[in-house]
Design a protein around this nucleic acid. Sequence first.
DNA 1: TTCTTGCATCGCCTTATAGCGATATTCCAC
DNA 2: GTGGAATATCGCTATAAGGCGATGCAAGAA
Lengths: 107, 107
Amino acid sequence: MPRLPRPALETIAETFRALSEATRLGILQELKEGAKTVNTLVEAMELSQANVSKQLRVLFDAGFLAREQRGTQVFYSIKDKSVLKICELVCERLNKQALANLVNYSI
Amino acid sequence: MPRLPRPALETIAETFRALSEATRLGILQELKEGAKTVNTLVEAMELSQANVSKQLRVLFDAGFLAREQRGTQVFYSIKDKSVLKICELVCERLNKQALANLVNYSI
DNA sequence: TTCTTGCATCGCCTTATAGCGATATTCCAC
DNA sequence: GTGGAATATCGCTATAAGGCGATGCAAGAA
């Protein structure tokens, strides 16, 4: 298998980077229940509205989320379910490694 | 499904963060061929030895790599193959999204 | 022991980004 | 239009991390 050129590796890295913050994983966890507005997420997560909007944008730009405006509200939802599968793999891995720590990882 | 507490999300995020740099993905790509010494990686990747050692440590601390010292040399290899599966999922996702861009993502 | 080789770490600079408050913008209700 | 509500963006600070050269350190070789 020939090696990927640097730009391709960068693209892959960007996908991982979008998932490399606990706050954004928390948002995905919330959205797993279904579409939610920005304000709903702000209240659920105890973060500033500015920050939630910002992190939503990161996930959106990474292609994971869909955005639907209804009046003044904006509903975000998980558009690309492969993100859940990716998280699942990582969680399985952590669960295997950490039988001792009593946490069951699962987004 | 109850939500994961913040520390658990942080742990998951750290796993993704270890994969969020092109340089480290490049190292994984090299090691997919088998165990290699630090110097071999330095030459293959055109990076400073200091930097390669540093990035190897990140991957090692994340639990992805094994380390074996033989004389003055240190061989690194992929210890946890689930990392390859995780990369594969991300690459599949990018390949679906980007049929237009002629790159075939695959670590 | 002393020298050399191979790797790890240190110190430093630079860049990226999480987080916040303040402000801009957009969309309805009135 | 005007006002209010919901979201996005701006400006900022603080922190994290990539990258390098220089240095430290450990393991053979001489």
